[in-house]
Write a protein that binds this DNA or RNA. Sequence first.
DNA 1: TACGTCCATATGTCATGACATATTCTTGAC
DNA 2: GTCAAGAATATGTCATGACATATGGACGTA
Lengths: 260, 260
Amino acid sequence: MTYGRTDICRYDDAVPGQPTITLDRSSPVPLYFQVAAQFEAAILSGALGPGERIENEITLAKDLGLSRPTMRQAIQVLVDKGMLVRKRGVGTQVVHGKVSRSVELTSLHDDLTQAGQDPRTTILGLERVPADETIASELQVAKGDDVWSLRRLRLISGKPLALMHNWLPVSLIDLEAHDLDTDGLYAVLRRAGIHMRVAKQRIGAAPASAADAKLLAEKRGAPLLTMQRTAYDNAGHAVEYGSHRYRPDLYSFEITLVDR
Amino acid sequence: MTYGRTDICRYDDAVPGQPTITLDRSSPVPLYFQVAAQFEAAILSGALGPGERIENEITLAKDLGLSRPTMRQAIQVLVDKGMLVRKRGVGTQVVHGKVSRSVELTSLHDDLTQAGQDPRTTILGLERVPADETIASELQVAKGDDVWSLRRLRLISGKPLALMHNWLPVSLIDLEAHDLDTDGLYAVLRRAGIHMRVAKQRIGAAPASAADAKLLAEKRGAPLLTMQRTAYDNAGHAVEYGSHRYRPDLYSFEITLVDR
DNA sequence: TACGTCCATATGTCATGACATATTCTTGAC
DNA sequence: GTCAAGAATATGTCATGACATATGGACGTA
């Protein structure tokens, strides 16, 4: 059997509950990713329920016309996401418990948009300022060097949700306030060809200062959820440092941990 | 060249900065894991500094007598941990910025012990109680079924750090208070042959209640960091549900996110 | 009936080989 | 001297094959 550039392989499983997988070998999207995405969709849609076992790797690979390593790689993607659990000698099954999207390398704006909300943003300030000790260290620039300072208030359904303060190296990008009105910071960076690769976050809690309280419509001293994040690009250079405050009644962090 | 059961391969690189890797093919520890662990040690010790490039996969594999997929798998472990960054056509390098241990599937007790602290625990209560709606749903048992209810106060250097409330299915294990005096809950579970595989956490903030405040030596209404966690074992069954409160001046969560 | 052994099953680990593609450097032409 | 084409390099993806090992059930024996 020979595969042309536009071959499409379909695999209709007779077993009820097993999803229908479609492969497009002409697509630039890797095969393992195509398989993983379709299994993920099946799990999220409920076609594959919690605890349900999927076909074994070898059979799946054969039916789809793939090698076992490729099939394994596809399954591994979902195991890493905490959606599937492998049991040696037994098989692979969907995890119990409701599957929720885990914390990924996205901005708050992305998160909210994907959740079907309609986030709005007020720019409180965009200016170039000299980096203090902390900012210089996080962004790997010299103390006193100019950096962007961006302060924003994020609103959801008209209610203030988060107070965000970001710092970026001026060498990286020319920020314009009107770009940030409609899109999130990360969307602007992506358009400029800057892609995040690694980020380190610290999540804590702190009382609202008088200024915080006024902007977030809370009382002074009220508990706020805080997050500091430093993000790095492909080259490993610091791209952004942010210090944010969230209203805890409107926002929380969800994380899925997988032991390997 | 033939490998016996006790062969030891060593690889001394002439390039400064490249770590010395020792392989033990008689060990039950997978080869890729041995390689990854030694690279990780080299990075954490500073022998491999931020931004430093490591040898390419093919050369490394050849020098160590491994296949490329195995070498790749070893590197992938550290890429997943956010310690290495791959750049196609260029090479693999250590990420910039200080490398910190990311949030893993460990308990607070494990975290503190590893950090060289000396955590102490006070058991506030250990009893069997009927599960309410929330607990029953999280632990996948019927509402009203008996579950363990465990309340503990964690202290560090004599200061109260966290107030922890855990629920576990009674069918899982027989909990004894004296076991929990010295070790953490997760250590007790591990000894009983119960291994966590996946956990879902939600991190937020809330004001201290009067009872919280008294136990944590804070004022009523003071901000507390909160975390709810449900952990699942190999089989995908819920093992533990916990609702915890932390003093934000003494504890925060650190997370490393990696985009793939 | 209870227990232990054996076997089928499915994932875990590892080797070899091949081609695709992004990146960077070098070389050559205008 | 500058820019573009091409070569070198290194990771990304995929196929094939083999053996190791944990799990669970079936079968046989005491």
